[in-house]
Design a protein around this nucleic acid. Structure first.
Lengths: 200, 200
DNA sequence: GCCTAAACTGTCACTGGGTGCCAATACGGT
DNA sequence: ACCGTATTGGCACCCAGTGACAGTTTAGGC
């Protein structure tokens, strides 16, 4: 067990990261060029110069090459939410956290548009994405429950779940609108509009 | 074109329905016995006495055997929503429509529990289900937009989308809670609690 | 009742994602 | 330099899904 914390942590780990990054870069290029379904794992592997088998060792599924970061993004969102003042009401905190997540994304508006379009074009990809997003909900529940009050009641859990799920739903609606408009509408404004409509 | 409405409408159609029903029954039994992933299309086909290829002609994907009714249920929901008084506010109408959908389902509480558990156990199945549910949102948007007022503004679309998505999210939270409790908690009460939390 | 077009069926061959296994090799720490 | 351990590639395999073809059944006009 190598416990030297923080350090490069070995060449092995570093090369692994490097290969992982190259896979994502290359695969994304191919996906955007030819489409997700039309690109085979074989082609990606050949392009990089590794075997198909090894490629599957880096990414268990084809979808994970695209959605691999999603889990990490969920963590960012959770951290951002927890960093918010404890007495801030749920909707405010969620809005702020979502904003932070959006700002943390390394994509340009152009890339983001292309990727999202691809997500909508491939059913399997879209399905997996929705599944990952569902998992985000679970991540946020503990913090929201804390904001809702003391009792660890079952109904508090329900309330927290609902708030998390609806915030993500509103975020998705805003993103979707932004994408469909080709990036012209103000995403944040769309989000606020969505929330306002839901809250009545 | 045979337009004798309501009638048996030909032997062909009748046998097709019968086979379809038998597939669902048999497949569901196997799924619940051995699990979704562990059951192959080959096994289902053999059990019924048809070829694998024909099975795929009835259901394009394995998931469709389980989720085939989902599209139809979306239609039921849309119809129920449109049948509500035009001046009824969105949340009320959505609640009533969801209630009608639930009552229209032919499953016993016991079956419903088993099926939902299976949905959670298989990632691919869950992913597809979320995708279908997403499509429900689109179905509901036109009616909700009409309830929201005259303007066919882009922001009205956003509001309608948000309302539909959040209502379905709350419904899911309520169902999920009900399932996790083993069917003991009152689903409708959970739904109301979820909505109340979201609306603040 | 018969005949023809359309629909349905099974068989076969094929693609592509994903996995288990094994032998060869490259690496890290001592 | 050496030894244990990851990592790799290659192979064989499973399973979902699709296209093509030929044989069979059905609907519906005559």
């Amino acid at each position: 067990m190598n416990d030297r914390k923080g350090r490069p942590a070995g060449l092995r780990e570093r090369t692994r990261r490097a290969v992982q990054a190259e896979i994502v870069t290359t695969a994304m290029r191919l996906f955007l060029e030819r489409g997700f379904e039309a690109t085979t794992m074989e082609q990606i592997a050949t392009e990089i110069g590794i075997s198909r088998r090894s490629l599957f060792r880096y990414f268990g599924t084809k979808e994970d090459i695209v959605l691999g970061d999603h889990a990490a993004h969920g963590e960012v969102l959770r951290a951002a939410l927890e960093a918010r003042p404890a007495n801030e009401p749920p909707w405010e905190a969620l809005r702020a956290a979502l904003r932070e997540l959006l700002e943390s994304l390394p994509y340009s508006a152009e890339d983001f548009l292309k990727i999202t379009s691809m997500l909508h074009a491939s059913p399997s990809l879209r399905a997996r994405q929705l599944e990952k997003r569902q998992q985000w909900t679970e991540l946020l529940v503990p913090d929201i429950a804390r904001r809702l009050g003391a009792a660890e009641d079952l109904m508090t859990q329900v309330r927290a779940h609902a708030l998390a799920a609806c915030a993500l739903a509103c975020s998705e609606v805003a993103t979707e609108t932004w994408v469909r408009s080709g990036g012209t509408v103000d995403m944040e404004r769309a989000f606020d509009e969505a929330v306002a409509a839901v809250r009545g």
